[in-house]
Computed example of a mutant assay.
Amino acid sequence: MNKIKNIIALAIFTILIYSCGDNNSLTVDNFDHEAQALIDNDSLVSFFKKHYYDSTLDSVKLLTSGKTALSEDANLKSIDVTENDIDYILYYYVNRIGNPEPVKGFPTVMDSVLVKYSGQRILKTDSLSTTFDRNNGIWFTLNSVIRGWAYSFPKFKGGKNVTANGPITYENGGKGILFIPSGLAYRNVGNTSIGANENLLFYINLYDIIENTDHDNDGVASIFEDPDGDLDPRNDDTDGDFIANYLDVDDDNDGTLTKDEDENGDGNPANDFSDPNNPDLPDYLNPDIN
């Protein structure tokens, strides 16, 4: 099996929630991302000691007497993340997990989500920028956004669509705040709105999700197009054609579309095994079966 080596950092900056373009120049990156990850975490920890969540204003504010610092707030959670061989700590604040109707689970890192958000830059350790971007409702897939979002949104669930007449409205959706180190955002590149190595804060509402999103409509949900089992389908390329399986309509390049390699006709090519010499290899990944 061929694997796409080291996801190109700039590729993850093709984020749907920003209109700004990215620098696509393929230059050698000698930046010390490991050291920056440590700097980012120190900055975030310091920020948490100096700020609290104001439930009345629904915003993060400078700490005042009698308030609980974010660093001591039980609603502030963390995730250990390894991305491109660099270890990060990602933080998120939970106002509400979410209570979807009809019942749905947590989104995966490949699912489509409907969200509302607003973003600010964390300046040094004691202040925030004005809002640099916001959207009151947009669909995107978690494989196409900054990695901090991809890892954070699976900690929340959607809500219930209560739309009657007028704008689409949801209630009881996931609600929280994301604190993203620069290495899981725009890294040492930045863009026109965000400087290099800047940590970010996002207020988010998760309204709805599409479970088991299938990007290439081949009958296999994108999250399951992960033959190496590392939970990152972006780096799996069975036929070595530089198209990740989750975007490849013919995963083994045998001339038969993946969706047509469904011997038992149940609509799921992933459970068809016709090769006695490779009994654990599904037909859609087996170039000897078409």
Rank of each mutant, 00 (worst) to 15 (best):
D226Q: 06
S19Q: 12
G174Y: 15
C20P: 01
G119Q: 11
S182T: 03
D214F: 08
N253V: 04
P279E: 00
S59L: 03
I194G: 05
G190Y: 11
S274C: 02
G166H: 12
A11K: 14
T125N: 09
K259I: 14
S59M: 07
S129A: 07
S25R: 14
T192A: 15
G119D: 05
D126N: 13
N24D: 09
I243E: 15
T131N: 14
D22H: 12
F153L: 13
G190I: 10
F153K: 03
K3L: 13
S25Q: 14
A196Q: 15
N75I: 00
N264D: 11
T64Y: 02
R234E: 00
A196T: 14
Y92H: 13
N6K: 13
K50F: 05
K3S: 08
G166N: 12
I17G: 07
D42F: 04
A164K: 11
N235F: 07
D22T: 12
G255V: 12
T258G: 08
D280G: 13
K5Y: 02
T56C: 00
K3C: 06
R96C: 02
P167M: 07
N99S: 13
T238S: 11
T14I: 05
T14E: 13
E72W: 01
L90P: 02
D275W: 05
K49D: 09
T125W: 01
G195C: 10
I8D: 06
T163C: 08
E72F: 05
V94F: 04
Y117L: 14
K157A: 06
F48N: 01
T213H: 11
L201K: 15
G21W: 00
L114C: 06
P102E: 12
Y207H: 14
A9Q: 09
N245L: 07
N135C: 06
N99P: 02
K3A: 11
G267R: 06
L257R: 12
K124V: 12
D288P: 00
K61Q: 12
